[in-house]
């Protein structure tokens, strides 16, 4: 398995180069448009060049946003996992983040109230729904 290939978590050099070239041309078009309007007083050419410039900048920004969105989508989300510890004798309950080695029904540290050994009674993750379904079924 070759590990020299570019990882998808990086933006490719070619894409970046293309974005910069388009941006440079777009800015040049806008400068030319200003020049055409103020120096040559040619409103028609100025309008065309402004249109090209704005279109180029919009396309570049859209591409950058798309690439950023793709990179964000690549990350694997790891939701927090919660461990609940309970004392069977006095009912004292404590909740903490999951630690490696935890398992359901494992005996852990003694209870702070009655000194009896506590046990892990629950390990779960809280799931947050990204968006609610709008269907009525």
């Amino acid at each position: 398995m070759s590990r020299k290939e570019q990882t998808p978590a990086q933006i490719s050099t070619f894409t970046m180069m293309m974005i910069f070239i388009v941006l440079a041309i777009s800015f040049a078009a806008i400068i030319l448009a200003i020049q055409a309007y103020s120096v040559y007083e040619n409103q028609f050419a100025a309008a065309y060049l402004t249109f090209i410039g704005i279109l180029g900048i919009a396309l570049s920004l859209y591409t950058i946003m798309q690439v950023r969105r793709r990179l964000a989508r690549l990350k694997i989300e790891t939701p927090p996992v919660i461990t609940t510890i309970e004392c069977k004798k006095c009912g004292f309950k404590s909740v903490r983040e999951f630690q490696r080695g935890d398992y359901v029904f494992k005996e852990v540290e003694p209870c702070r109230k009655c000194n009896e050994n506590m046990i892990i009674t629950a390990i779960y993750r809280e799931f947050k729904e990204k968006r609610k379904e709008t269907t009525s079924f």
């Binding site: 790891t78 999951f98 779960y124």
Partner: peptide, 28 residues
């Protein structure tokens, strides 16, 4: 499977473990 990886690596209970969890609650 991607979300399973970390669960397996850390030894966290997974959704498929609900059957053994019910049995464990009964036999504890």
């Amino acid at each position: 499977y991607a979300s399973a990886l970390k669960a397996f690596a850390y030894g966290q209970p997974i959704g498929d473990g609900i059957g053994p969890l019910v049995a464990a609650k009964l036999m504890h």
